[in-house]
Amino acid sequence: MMEFNEIQNLWKKQGADKIKFSQQKIDDMINQIEKQRKTNLISIISATIGCIPAMIGMIALMFLLPDRSFLFYGSLIFMTLVVAGTLAFTWHKYFQWGNQSHIESSQSYIDQTLKKLETQKMMSNKVMPIYMVLLIIGFNVYFLDVLSDESQFRRILSHGLITIGMPIFYYFISFIEKKRQKKEVDPLIKSLKEWKSELDSELDSELDKDSSTINKY
């Protein structure tokens, strides 16, 4: 029979030096993370530089063409808001880089991670289809005004391309996302829920113990 001290000593014989993990590998890893962070920043700045003139252009169009229909202005405002919203969301995600829940206690980490994963799932399964439908409506409304003087064939073609093309594009994107969710997100949510219920039941039993102690007096 092994004594606990013996077990402890035995356990400590296993060190990180036994694995193939050199200082060089760690430095490479850090450089890669920092490089990736810089690349992300550059792409977000480029996207912002690209999107801001487009937004200014859309707003300018509203003032330069004063005699257009409500559909024209409505669709331009909608598209400007969509672009601005997407940009804001991208910057928000970038600034969340170092702001992680890993530093909290496991109880609060699990709560925060579950909330984050479920929000992400809800965004991609429920909000994105609505966003896509609104985008299709926005484009169609814009075309209704802009293409009003074009031939019927060109109008039908433009409306058709947007109305059919965007859902097909969305279908492929969501297919990949659902596959990822099934493989990575769902098992993680399941496992975190198991952890949560285990930790919660312990807290409940502590509360029960406290209340039974209070009842004694």
Binding site: S101, I103, S105, S106, Y109, I110, W195
Partner: peptide, 8 residues
């Protein structure tokens, strides 16, 4: 904490 949470 970071280790335990990452491991979870």
């Amino acid at each position: 904490r970071i280790t335990v949470n990452t491991t979870i």
